[in-house]
Design a protein around this nucleic acid. Structure first.
Lengths: 182, 182
DNA sequence: TCAGGTGCTGACCGATCGGTCAGATTAGTG
DNA sequence: CACTAATCTGACCGATCGGTCAGCACCTGA
């Protein structure tokens, strides 16, 4: 029905984002997405090579920002300054892409083990290292992990809180919660 | 093979815990569990009504402790003392049952929407409220959410850190990270 | 007018899921 | 021995999954 024109690609992407946000990646079937768009499942797979390709395209901008943050962190010589850059950069990223992060809905660990997402695992580990001020103390790494996982899990909730207020709250939390460099 | 005797029930439970811990609840099939035990899938379903029943029995002790913590929190008249009881109780619970919590592997949100786990959602919300020192300020609730989700996500990792060290690190983090009562 | 490309679809595929069921095997009891 | 009840299993079920494919309708340009 209705001449859809080639904007279908974008419609599928938007519909997938909506569905992933509600039922998660694994919990959303291609049929679900097709139903939301109003096309057939075959049409979805005409525009995207497979299901993972939809998620990849959806997450691409956020991943690119994460990658550039990783570079900025690596360029910092001092643990203390790297920690600051990591905290500010991560909170900024989490707030800016909170919709995208939310749609992972806790499936982050499972997705990381999948090929094509393996390099993100490395980025996360380096981010963790920077947040722990490159310390090997267990307490420092534990605190960094709690905050990393917690912020990622949180930013999707509180959809009613404006970006700036959310960013300020998260940044204030990280500042008082992270252990300072040795 | 091998006369298994009625200890099979416990073996299935242990195997399920191991598998859930690796691939998560949804990512583990009854066939996987049966394979780990060395019995047939039908045997698993002879000992348990269905897949959810395995998870329920596995989580029962942790849920019972959470329920009793909820009562202790509710009995505290002051927000400040309720916050302290909530923080200490939650960290203690997270560390004691870290294996059980780990096997949820971020599927917590999805599981909560399932009947039979709905009441845990309420317990979590009341715990969040106490950690936020019953404040309605967005920053307080955001901090409480980050720490709640973060600790839950964290305690499964760091399996090599002893209970006491993990508990001390988490408690110290919560003490400096939570906003004090108004 | 017609050939060819684009967008799209219904029908279908093999795999896997949770779950059922009739029946085989075993252990205990009289 | 016979009988019963508990334990266990292979075969099977319907549903759903991601993905494939031949072909239909439409548009465009030669």
């Amino acid at each position: 029905m209705a001449r859809t024109t080639p904007q279908t690609h974008g419609e599928i992407l938007a519909a997938a984002a909506r569905r992933f946000g509600v039922t998660g990646y694994r919990g959303t079937s291609l049929q679900d997405i097709a139903g939301e768009v109003g096309c057939s499942k075959a049409t979805v797979l005409y525009h995207f090579a497979n299901k993972e390709a939809i998620l990849t395209e959806l997450m691409a901008p956020a991943i690119e920002v994460l990658r550039s943050l990783d570079e900025r962190i690596a360029a910092e010589p001092e643990p203390a300054s790297a920690q600051r850059v990591a905290a500010e950069g991560f909170v900024d990223l989490a707030v800016r892409f909170r919709a995208e992060i939310a749609l992972l809905r806790g499936e982050f660990p499972a997705l990381m083990q999948q090929p094509g997402f393996a390099h993100i695992q490395q980025l996360s580990e380096r981010l963790l290292d920077a947040l722990a001020a490159r310390s090997t103390r267990a307490s420092a790494r534990i605190a960094a992990f709690v905050l990393l996982a917690g912020v990622a899990e949180t930013c999707g909730e509180f959809a009613d809180v404006p970006d700036e207020e959310l960013r300020d709250a998260l940044l204030a939390l990280l500042r008082r919660a992270l252990e300072p460099a040795d």
